[in-house]
Design a binder for these strands. Structure first.
Lengths: 161, 161
DNA sequence: TATGAAAGAACCTGGCC
DNA sequence: GGCCAGGTTCTTTCATA
């Protein structure tokens, strides 16, 4: 799908505030409200915008601790096996198979360190898991709303570019 | 702040669909539309809900590649130094200082592997960075909308509990 | 093909109970 | 927390370039 500058600006505005009115967005990007709505509808249908979500503060909800866990699995473990197993844990916020020594990397949110420990214990007990290697998060430095930036043809990076 | 079951359900509904009407949410949780609005206003003011954001498909926008990068820094590097530096890169989606050998872990989204390489090169060239260790994501298994789950007093985890 | 304007329907918002 | 009224926003249609 082809995205022009208007589409990118609209997406940017909606990532900033998904409840902005079409009129507000239109004023910001230089379109009428109805033109904005048509583009948003099109972007949703095309799959560029997959939905609208509330941003919640993990701390305020009691998720004060997070950790990253590397998973080392048995040779014949498939990605879907891992996906199936870890998706059963609500504490697993994200998971991916990766290159390098470990087979997968999990991102875990929990209520406290004890809770992290308990979850890791259970995951380590999954039949395909050989061993795990965990890192507790000390302080979060960056946490961009998923997909806030939009790739340009060039110059995505800092000034040095 | 104290959250009851209704608050949790409302947050859950808004994480699912931030553009759901108050009436729809109310029907789902068993409240009138205005009661839902009052609670949402309160949850926003209390900081439990920090905003509303469009979910975008990184693929659809051209971000087809992601990587995790461990940062090993000079002894006297402060977290804020790292934060200041890496937040200048739009490709850095998340960053945190962690326990273990590495000092920080970055999550990077880029348009392709070449782009990932370029960004890592630049970050490695930051004055406080001693070395980096990168893992390219092969396939994403889980990607929960930030804060989709809400901690209960017990039984957050799979059946085994 | 994409835009702006307009009208009716749906929704939000605040006051009141 | 529910109900209601006034103001706003959404959604669709129509005309236009």
């Amino acid at each position: 799908m082809e995205l022009d500058r208007l589409d990118r600006d609209i997406i940017g505005a909606l990532v900033e505030d998904a409840r902005a009115t079409y009129a507000e967005i239109g004023q910001h990007v230089g379109l009428s409200a109805s033109a904005v709505k048509r583009r948003v509808d099109r972007l949703r249908q095309a799959g560029a915008i997959t939905g609208f979500s509330a941003r919640v503060s993990p701390q305020a909800l009691g998720w004060t601790t997070e950790a990253y866990v590397e998973l080392f699995c048995q040779g014949k473990t498939s990605p879907s096996d891992i996906a199936l197993a870890v998706s059963r844990y609500p504490e697993v916020v994200s998971a991916a198979t990766i290159t390098g020594e470990a087979d997968a990397l999990l991102h875990i949110r929990a209520t406290d360190v004890r809770h992290v420990e308990r979850v890791i214990e259970r995951i380590a007990a999954e039949p395909f898991v050989v061993r795990t290697k965990s890192s507790i998060v000390l302080s979060r430095l960056v946490d961009a709303p998923a997909g806030s930036a939009v790739p340009e043809t060039r110059n995505e990076s800092p000034v040095a570019g």
